[in-house]
Design a protein around this nucleic acid. Structure first.
Lengths: 231, 231
DNA sequence: CCGCTCCGGATAGCGATACTATCTGCTATC
DNA sequence: GATAGCAGATAGTATCGCTATCCGGAGCGG
């Protein structure tokens, strides 16, 4: 397969494929002479993976490169590439290490101990949780984070399902790819499903704008304060 | 308060504040003469919110502008600004509407009906779920999405907690801000907590790399296939 | 062997994003 | 009245993700 066929079959333009080759996202084709190369199904597959990570997962080109490099590294454990993928796709939180930060760090440490999680405090994920807590606190929405255990519980269930899936893959390369897909597309999926649940729950509680209110009396069991139908 | 003080108190440089003013993220200060303006606590607060949305939530400047415009619009319901915020912060999935897409759409419609969700099929969240399913399918990881109900269930619990929080806020402006913070920072929080859960679960199942394996026999109850310790 | 198309590889350019720097004309203050 | 700071406008910068062009060579029908 030549580059033009790879392009038409993947829907990615030839210059873009060349760009991905330059950036190391896609391995070079097999050079059959000084300026002729062959590409195969693996290249096509990889190209589709790249597009999914970029278009659906929202990763940058640099993040894709790092993630794929981790998945390609020989002799790595699933645990290792999972962690490396995580670190590659999340940016530094970059907030001041002030007093709010320290308090948030204590809260996260408490949470982790409460749930018996075995995780690294220096991981970007840990730092990001701290950053969110510190931010919410500074914005005077710290109360929101009292629900942290609900979040953690839900994430545990999802993570269990994810690891079940990955563990069920027989082929090793497919398993590593499964880690990448599950991590990156999983982020997008969780985010989108949470939005749908928000939509639905807000309609259920507050009506959908049309005034024939057919949500019968099952409103409001968890909110302890007055809400006079929310503006 | 002059612009310099606003800058030093928020940690945002004066040129950047001017940039935000130009872009409509921050309302103009009260003009006290032709070229002198006063800023107050509301400006400082808004500025901190902007930085949280950008640094922690990862929003673009354009998305922040749209979200804040929605929250500032007078007379809007919580439901409406929740939806508008969602639409503003998520990009178009832009995948081909092929046969895989159509099948994914059916799956999502099934899910929504199964759970009794009241959501809009044209919302970006719905389209994004479809895009993830179609993508996973094309990458031959369609089996992963059999866990969709686990994801949906977890997201429902989170959404309930979020709406409980918002409903518990007395002040209307704070409530609208709570929607924004909960939506945007909530995304970041869920993503990061899922990563921590992934880390922990992978260590629990596969060991943490140090070879004294102290996870006693509670390994593997949900995976039905051979995993000979994952490469 | 000619002419045409396509190839791989290299280099340069382009549009969008998020600032950053500079300039102008004014003003508050010491 | 010198100095500093201000608002508003304009221009410049760095990065990202491509896109366009050029080059010398290869394949291939005639």
């Amino acid at each position: 397969m030549r580059i033009k066929e790879l392009s038409s079959r993947s829907g990615v333009s030839v210059p873009t494929i060349k760009y991905y080759l330059r950036e190391g996202l896609l391995p070079a084709g097999e050079l059959v002479s000084k300026n002729q190369a062959n590409y195969d199904g693996a290249h096509l597959r990889r190209l589709r993976l790249i597009r999914a990570l970029v278009d659906v997962g929202g990763l940058t080109i640099a993040a894709v490169r790092d993630v794929l490099a981790a998945a390609d590294a020989p002799g790595e454990t699933v645990r290792k590439i999972l962690y490396t993928a995580q670190e590659s796709i999340s940016g530094e939180p970059e907030l001041p290490r002030d007093e709010a930060w320290a308090e948030a760090e204590r809260k996260v440490a408490d949470l982790v101990e409460r749930r018996g999680w075995q995780v690294k405090p220096e991981s970007k994920a840990w730092q990001t949780v701290v950053a969110v807590l510190a931010s919410a606190r500074q914005l005077e929405h710290g109360v929101w984070t009292h629900k942290l255990d609900v979040y953690a519980d839900a994430c545990e269930r999802i993570a269990t399902a994810d690891l079940d899936y990955v563990a069920g893959i027989a082929d090793v390369d497919a398993m590593l790819e499964g880690v990448v897909v599950g991590t990156v597309l999983g982020d997008t999926l969780v985010t989108a499903l949470r939005r749908l649940a928000h939509q639905s729950e807000s309609v259920r509680r507050l009506g959908d704008g049309t005034q024939d209110d057919d949500t019968q009396g099952d409103d409001t069991q968890g909110n302890d304060t007055h809400h006079e139908d929310a503006r």
